[in-house]
Amino acid sequence: MQKIKVLSVCLLLSIILIGCQNINNLNLNEDITHIEVYEWNSEKLMDTIEDQVFIEELTSELDNAKTHSTANIDWAMPDYQLLFKDDNEVLYEIGYCNEIQNFGSGAVGRYWESDKLYEVSTELPLE
C-alpha cells in the first residue's frame, strides 16, 4: 500500500513537471543576423529587418508562444513570408499577416507556420 502511494505521488509530480516545461517552438541555436520579408509565394523582397533588439524580442515571443491549429480553417494565406537568416543561411521560415487573425477559441495572432497560428501580434517594422 505504501508503494502505491509513493508511485502515485511520483506520477503526479512527473505530470506537473511535464506541464511546466518551457515551450520551444523555434529551437533556434544560431544567431539571427536579419529577417528578410518577401511577398507570400513570391520572390519579391519587400524589406530586410536588421534591428537586433527587435529580432531577439520577436524570436523570444515566437519561441514561447501558444500555438493553435489552423488545419481545419479556410482562410487567406499570409501577406508575407519571413526568412530568419544567419548571414546567407535560412534558419527559419514563417508567414506574417498584416492584420491580426482571429479564428476564435483563443487563436489570435499574425504569425503562421504550416498548420498553426502563433499567439503573437507584434507588428513588423516595415518601411
Results as ranks from 00 to 15, higher is better:
residue 3 K to W: 13
residue 3 K to S: 11
residue 3 K to V: 06
residue 4 I to Q: 15
residue 4 I to V: 09
residue 7 L to K: 07
residue 7 L to G: 11
residue 10 C to L: 12
residue 12 L to D: 09
residue 13 L to S: 04
residue 13 L to E: 05
residue 14 S to E: 02
residue 15 I to P: 01
residue 19 G to A: 06
residue 19 G to V: 03
residue 23 I to H: 01
residue 26 L to V: 03
residue 34 H to P: 12
residue 34 H to K: 10
residue 34 H to A: 13
residue 36 E to L: 02
residue 37 V to L: 00
residue 37 V to R: 00
residue 38 Y to W: 10
residue 39 E to V: 03
residue 40 W to S: 05
residue 41 N to I: 01
residue 41 N to A: 07
residue 41 N to S: 04
residue 44 K to T: 06
residue 46 M to E: 11
residue 52 Q to T: 14
residue 53 V to Y: 01
residue 54 F to P: 05
residue 55 I to L: 14
residue 58 L to K: 10
residue 58 L to M: 07
residue 59 T to I: 14
residue 59 T to D: 12
residue 62 L to M: 09
residue 63 D to Y: 08
residue 64 N to A: 12
residue 68 H to D: 05
residue 73 I to W: 11
residue 75 W to R: 13
residue 75 W to F: 15
residue 76 A to T: 15
residue 76 A to D: 12
residue 79 D to S: 08
residue 81 Q to N: 09
residue 84 F to V: 07
residue 86 D to P: 06
residue 86 D to Y: 07
residue 87 D to A: 12
residue 88 N to R: 14
residue 90 V to H: 13
residue 91 L to A: 14
residue 92 Y to I: 12
residue 93 E to D: 12
residue 94 I to D: 11
residue 94 I to L: 09
residue 97 C to G: 07
residue 99 E to C: 06
residue 99 E to K: 10
residue 99 E to L: 11
residue 100 I to T: 13
residue 104 G to W: 14
residue 110 R to A: 07
residue 112 W to D: 10
residue 116 K to H: 11
residue 116 K to I: 03
residue 116 K to A: 05
residue 117 L to K: 11
residue 118 Y to I: 00
residue 118 Y to T: 03
residue 122 T to H: 02
residue 122 T to C: 03
residue 123 E to Q: 03
residue 123 E to W: 01
residue 125 P to E: 02
residue 126 L to I: 08
residue 126 L to F: 06
residue 127 E to F: 04
